[in-house]
Amino acid sequence: MLLWINGPFGGGKTQTAYEIRRRLPGSVVCDPEHAGFGLLRMLPRELRDDRGGKRLIDDFQDLVSWRQGVVEVLDVVLTGHAGVVIVPMTVTDPGYFTETVGRLRELGHDVRHFSLLAERETVTRRLRERGPGQLLRRATGRGGGPHRESRAVRRLDHCLERLSEPEFAEHLWTDHSTVPKTADRIAVLAGLTLRPNNEGRLRTRVRQVRVGLPHVRLD
């Protein structure tokens, strides 16, 4: 089984994916962003930077090689791995959704898709909190400073609007849900049983910082 966790940037996909992995023995997380950012880094900076004025690739998902590569690799993993495979990945284009999630289903895999949604204010707050400085402050329970608008914030309205469409169900609203509770809801809907969440608040904060830091984009 593959759990594809969709949602806007900063919507909690990655944290939820690793929460499920932590509590579901034999499961693995496969993150297609790694392949996408790797493809972008093959380009000179001026061709992938907003400030360059010559950028040819707006989003790595526009590359056919990314879409086909994700399907190929996940097909291999699902065929060879006995446990549940978890994929945290934002996909809002219906055509790209068909070429990835739809194609995996055509290949005979059991793909359960979930869109994590929240109000705009909730997502922008989460984006502020996942910056490098904020992630470190979370470990000590302290607040943070101002946030510079990012590409994720600029695309937020588009993501929320598109993912609210019926084709991107199952929809899970997370404004008043913690990451462990969201993981529990996904598990129930997918017919899976997670280990009980017996982790304390401080340990949870530290672990979520460790999960979040490798996913902070600095380039």
Rank of each mutant, 00 (worst) to 15 (best):
T79W: 03
Q15P: 09
L194F: 04
R217A: 11
R105F: 00
G26R: 12
V64I: 07
R138D: 15
S27I: 07
E199M: 14
R155D: 14
L136S: 04
P44H: 15
T193Q: 09
R105W: 00
W66P: 12
R217I: 10
I86K: 11
D175H: 10
R130Y: 01
V153K: 02
F168I: 03
R51Y: 06
L40F: 15
E161R: 06
L136D: 15
G83V: 12
R55F: 08
L43M: 02
N197Q: 08
E33L: 10
L194D: 15
R205C: 03
R207N: 09
E72K: 09
G53A: 08
V84S: 00
R155E: 04
G53M: 04
R155S: 09
L117R: 12
R185D: 04
A17W: 12
A139S: 10
R126F: 15
L40E: 08
G10Q: 05
V211A: 08
T122E: 12
F37P: 02
V87E: 03
P32W: 14
V111S: 00
T79I: 13
L202K: 01
V29H: 00
A139K: 14
T193V: 08
R137A: 07
L135K: 09
D157F: 11
K54H: 05
F97T: 00
E170D: 01
Q134P: 06
L3H: 01
Q68T: 08
V123G: 00
G10A: 02
V206I: 09
V91K: 00
N198E: 10
S164M: 12
L3W: 01
G7T: 03
G69N: 14
D58Q: 15
I57P: 09
V206W: 12
P180S: 07
R120C: 08
L202P: 13
G191V: 10
F60G: 06
L194Q: 08
G52D: 12
L163Q: 15
N6S: 15
K181M: 12
G200Q: 01
E149Y: 05
P88H: 02
R185P: 11
G141N: 07
R201D: 11
V188T: 03
L74K: 07
A183P: 06
I86T: 05
F168Y: 13
P25I: 03
G141I: 03
D75Q: 14
A187V: 14
A152M: 10
V70Q: 03
G53F: 05
Q68G: 08
L74N: 06
R162M: 09
P214G: 12
L104T: 00
R205Y: 04
P8G: 05
G143R: 04
V29W: 06
D175E: 06
D75L: 13
E161A: 07
V123L: 13
R203W: 09
C159A: 04
E129C: 13
D31L: 05
D110E: 05
M42D: 02
H113I: 06
A183D: 11
T100S: 00
D50A: 15
R51N: 07
A35F: 15
H81M: 02
R55A: 02
L194E: 07
E46Y: 14
L163H: 08
E106I: 00
